[in-house]
Amino acid sequence: MTTTDFITEIADILGMPAHTLTPETDLTAIPAWDSVAWLSSLVLIDEKLGAAVRPEMVSGARTLQDILQAVAHKLES
């Protein structure tokens, strides 16, 4: 999975067009970025990337970049 694919998946979780999300996007400003979105993101990371991340890396993320950094080692360059 590439970074672009991952961002598209996150956009899908948030119900937003993929092109509206960038690494710099402030997730905390998006109403849909709530506990339900956190769980969906944890499933995405676990199922599609097989990555073990601390849950607070998702629930405590301020920007999309925070999450990308946590899973960078599992994304195709």
């Binding site: 506990s35 769980l39 944890l42 073990a52 849950p55 607070e56 629930s59």
Partner: peptide, 24 residues
């Protein structure tokens, strides 16, 4: 931060952490 109200005399659950624990 999600507007859920509770005191320390109420049950608390970190949903993301418990979810992550379960799937792990």
């Amino acid at each position: 931060r999600e507007g859920n109200i509770r005191s320390q005399q109420n049950l608390y659950m970190n949903g993301a952490a418990i979810f992550h624990f379960a799937i792990s």
